[in-house]
Amino acid sequence: MSAPGIERYDAARVAAMADPYPAYAAFRARGRLLPAGPGAWAVPRYEDVAALLRDPRLGHEFPDAMYRLSGEPDVLTEFFRATVLNRDAPSHPVLRRAMAALLAPRVVARLRTRIDELVARLLADLAEAGTGDLVEGLAYPLPVIVSSELLGIPAADRDRLRPHAVALGRAFGAGIQPAGDRDAAIAAVHWLRGYVRELLERASDGPLSGVLAASRDAGLAAEEVVDNVIFLFFAGFDTTTNLIANGCAELLERPALLETLRGDPALAESAVEEFLRFEAPIQATARIVREPVEIGGRVLRARRLVLLLLASANRDERRFADPDRIDLARSPNPHLSFSSGVHHCLGATLARIEGAAVFAQVAARRDGFVPAGPPRRRDHPSFRGFARLPVRFR
């Protein structure tokens, strides 16, 4: 990255890099705070990012002006603003408790056997074909099936849901988008709202019954419940797809890692944490300053935008020894890829179980996979993952 680029953080420019981590290192070397556009600042160092994720002076409810600047149409603004991710107290804890009924650790833990079965089946299908794409054949379908079953979505409906969920996921955190992507996202919101309304109407004794009961007790409006169930669905598989794809890509690129994991399958769980640290599925998260906050000798006034660079914090040499090396046994590993504080990822436990199942079974297979062509990165300003990972099985 050239010297002028180091003076400020440009999300689109960094996202376009095949390897953004030297740029993040340059940001950290420059200081604790970097300009990131009009009224916006970026925070690159671990200590600051970790503290600010928990700082109540920063919020997640962005003013109307910021949504207008992003170019988002009203229907997308309305949808994303209704989700638990973009709400602050007092509505955020109410919504979070209602949605958490679906993702409680004790509920998710009961899915371990089913997840193991799904991973085994998907890997067997890929191996039988001889060649394939680890994104299309494993990293994408696994969390989609798990999320669908968690919400009680019939298997026959999943192909119909897929294009709409993908379109909405593409719009999530993307800012200004091409007209075609915006139109697809708008259509997705309308279609998914209709579908989820019908799903909730027949959910009296299904997986969503707990969410409905908790929502009624909390006095939530029906449309709030609909939008947040939609959010849980696509958010539940989008970042997990990136986690699985990123981890598998590292195992493909570094056969020694695969041998380490094969020699000690118990490392699968810590491998999940290390892959999350090494390649954060969500590279940055935004906050709005609610009350003045001092960072690096500068006081940021209210209504300023703060970008917390999770991917940079996860590679901060001040917090992690040898941060650019993958250590599958790294402990402790306090990465920030699931955020922290009141907005800690609701689906973190489920993502960890899915990732560990994949990495353990990939290592255990005797017919290992090898690259079958160049991988292709996903094109998104906030998410880091792969669109394609071609492989062949030996």
Rank of each mutant, 00 (worst) to 15 (best):
M99Y: 09
E269M: 02
C345P: 02
R182G: 10
V119F: 09
P334N: 06
A18P: 05
A218C: 15
A155D: 12
A25L: 07
G152Y: 03
L118Y: 02
C248Y: 00
A36M: 05
A104L: 08
F338P: 06
E354V: 00
V189H: 12
A214H: 08
E7Q: 06
V289Y: 07
M66R: 15
G247I: 03
V49R: 12
R45L: 12
L199Y: 12
F231M: 08
V362F: 11
N242P: 01
L111N: 03
T239E: 04
R182H: 11
N314L: 01
E223P: 07
P22F: 02
Y21N: 06
R315I: 04
S91C: 00
V289K: 09
R318N: 10
F231C: 06
H190F: 13
A16V: 12
R377N: 03
L336K: 04
L252W: 11
L200E: 05
A188T: 13
D217W: 04
Y67I: 10
R182K: 14
A184S: 11
A213P: 05
R277V: 05
A286M: 13
P390A: 13
G296M: 00
P154V: 09
I6G: 08
A120L: 14
A174M: 11
R13V: 14
V84M: 08
A214N: 13
A245T: 09
L309H: 07
E269H: 09
A40P: 01
E198K: 10
A167L: 04
S2N: 15
D116L: 00
R301I: 10
E149C: 01
A203P: 04
Y140D: 10
A179D: 13
M1H: 13
E128W: 09
Y46R: 13
L151K: 07
R377F: 10
A188M: 13
A256G: 05
P141M: 03
A124S: 11
R303N: 15
L134S: 02
R110Q: 06
F233W: 13
G347Y: 00
Q177D: 08
R87Y: 01
S340P: 06
V391A: 08
E291K: 14
D205I: 01
L102Y: 02
R388E: 15
F27T: 09
H335R: 14
H343W: 08
G385V: 12
F359D: 00
D181R: 12
S382A: 15
I145P: 01
A65K: 14
G206F: 00
T83I: 03
L168W: 06
P292F: 00
L150M: 08
L243V: 14
M17C: 12
F393P: 07
S70H: 06
V306N: 10
L200V: 02
A26T: 07
A363L: 04
A266Y: 03
A18E: 15
P20N: 09
R376Y: 10
L126S: 04
